[in-house]
């Protein structure tokens, strides 16, 4: 049983089709990374799975129902999303932003409840951003800011969480910090997480499952050990390399060959 899957999915922008006829099954309660070269369609796939793009063909199913038949609000109660470049209004404070994650749970007249308080509190605590609540987002470091955006997505209180390149623009320390946070959310709250990632070594280290894409198609899928091989990296990224084993975690590491 899987909660989120796509069948025969084709997606595109304007007159260009970017991904064609994909079948994707997202493993429940696992952390999945989508990797691939630039412009291979990995963000497009994520956007399609998050109903930001209408399928050209095929469909995305959430809990076995076609997403097109669900109201966007219903989806938002189950599936959270952190877009690649969210915009923060000028001067917005951390508490205000995180609180906006509660939108799908509030009605026209039912405004702020105990449940909202609780969800925001948990989101702030999980992301270690509670001491920032009255700070403006603009004044935070890149790593802190990204943690706050994750907190907003967490406040949405969904079982599934999709993140589009959450580690881009972060330094190595903050990248690791963010991936550890995703691991923790998966471990402690059993969240199903899908993230588009660039760094193969970090994806191998912190994800259970890797989907490798090339030219709008899925070329390999499985555990890091199964997917990250010298042949695959050569094929997907055009990089000749040697795979060594991470001395700490035993996961594969890509080392460019001469």
């Amino acid at each position: 049983m899987t909660r989120l899957r796509a069948e025969g999915l084709s997606l595109g922008y304007d007159d260009a089709t970017v991904v064609t006829n994909l079948d994707v099954t997202v493993l429940d309660r696992k952390v999945t990374a989508i990797v691939g070269a630039n412009a291979c369609g990995k963000s497009t796939l994520l956007r399609g799975m998050a109903r930001l793009l209408k399928p050209r063909k095929g469909a995305v199913y959430l809990d076995d129902r076609p997403m097109a038949e669900l109201s966007t609000l219903e989806v938002a109660k189950v599936l959270g999303l952190l877009p690649q470049t969210p915009v923060a209004p000028d001067g917005i404070t951390v508490a205000d932003l995180v609180g906006r994650g509660r939108y799908p749970h509030q009605g026209w007249f039912r405004r702020w409840t105990e449940r909202d308080h609780e969800a925001v509190t948990l989101a702030l605590a999980a992301t270690d951003t509670a001491d920032l609540i009255d700070r403006p987002l603009r004044g935070l470091s890149g790593g802190q800011r990204q943690r706050v955006w994750v907190a907003m997505a967490l406040a949405q209180d969904t079982d599934l969480l999709l993140l589009d390149e959450p580690t881009t623009y972060l330094d190595i320390n903050h990248q690791v910090e963010l991936l550890r946070l995703l691991r923790k959310l998966n471990g402690e709250q059993g969240k199903t997480i899908v993230a588009v990632l660039h760094d193969l070594n970090l994806a191998s280290r912190y994800c259970d499952h890797i989907i490798a894409m090339s030219d709008g198609a899925i070329v390999a899928e499985g555990t890091p050990q199964e997917v990250i091989t010298a042949e695959l990296v050569e094929k997907v990224f055009g990089l000749a390399c040697v795979i060594v084993t991470d001395p700490v975690a035993g996961t594969p590491i890509v080392v460019p060959s001469e």
Partner: peptide, 8 residues
């Protein structure tokens, strides 16, 4: 994107 993700 964020607004749609939140169900707007």
């Amino acid at each position: 994107d964020a607004a749609r993700g939140l169900g707007v």
